[in-house]
Design a protein around this nucleic acid. Structure first.
Length: 255
DNA sequence: ATGGTGGGATGCCCA
């Protein structure tokens, strides 16, 4: 079973890419971020044509998340329970016996800003919730755009992406480590220790051509799923297409 | 260079 996270940066613009990629990669479950679509505009009919059901939580212009799946999804949860937030960044559902939590983590703009404080509060709320989710659902997958590069080897230049920089700051990495300490493991690192393997490249400065990227799109899997996870990777191909998302799909394979 | 590129409720905000 192939499970994927992809920040599409506007599903309206990227639907043709998504459809093409679904057709060739044939994932079973897809977590999308930055759909930037109100629910009434979500292309669920087109995706049924591609063989996928959808659950989604969106808004105009910003944010927006969805889970696509071949099998039906149940027990859909939108947002972090008890955390009041107008921004549509979280959707969770049960698919094929797996609890899937799709996160579009706050970017945070710059260390020390209001948005950075919101990011850290948001991650705290996510931590408390995921502790509960794990107790309830041992087979848990938490995936999405984490907007945090876990380690120096997940950045193209650790001297730039350092402990004071947004997406790599100490407080952000500690928040991610607290999630992992719940018993959630970075599936990519179960299978590859390579550096320079990125999932996001800035549109500016020819970032993709020069591989100036970060690995910020992650899949965390619970203890019980570790033995079932046989492979993980990042598919750079859609990033080479015309008018791409700035993110590539990050995938894991479960047996 | 406080820049740059891309998406969208566009002449700004967010990433």
């Amino acid at each position: 079973m192939k499970i994927v996270s992809w920040n599409v940066n506007s599903l309206n613009v990227r639907l043709p890419h998504l459809e093409q990629w679904l057709g060739t990669f044939a994932p079973d479950i897809v977590a999308l971020q930055e759909t930037k679509l109100e629910d009434t505009r979500f292309p669920d009919t087109a995706l049924v044509g591609a063989g996928y059901r959808s659950v989604f939580a969106g808004q105009k212009t910003y944010n927006g998340v969805a889970i696509l799946s071949r099998e039906s999804a149940s027990d859909v949860q939108i947002g972090i329970p008890g955390f009041d937030d107008e921004q549509k960044r979280v959707i969770a559902a049960t698919v094929a016996g797996l609890r899937i939590v799709n996160l579009y983590v706050v970017n945070g703009q710059d260390v020390g800003t209001d948005k950075y404080a919101y990011k850290l509060r948001w991650l705290d709320a996510a931590h408390a919730w995921l502790q509960n989710e794990l107790a309830q659902y041992p087979d848990l997958i938490v995936l999405g755009d984490f907007n945090i590069a876990p380690e120096a080897r997940d950045t193209h230049d650790p001297s730039v992406w350092n402990e004071h920089h947004i997406l790599t700051s100490t407080a952000e990495r500690e928040a991610l480590q607290r999630l992992q300490a719940l018993g959630l493991h970075d599936a990519y690192r179960l299978h590859s220790q390579e550096e320079g393997q990125f999932s996001w490249w800035d549109y500016r400065q020819a970032g993709f051509r020069r591989n100036l990227g970060l690995r910020i799109d992650l899949t965390l899997i619970s203890d019980s799923l570790r033995a079932r996870c046989t492979a993980a990777g990042i598919d750079r191909e859609p990033r080479t297409w015309d008018r791409p998302s700035d993110h590539a799909p990050a995938w894991v394979e479960l047996v």
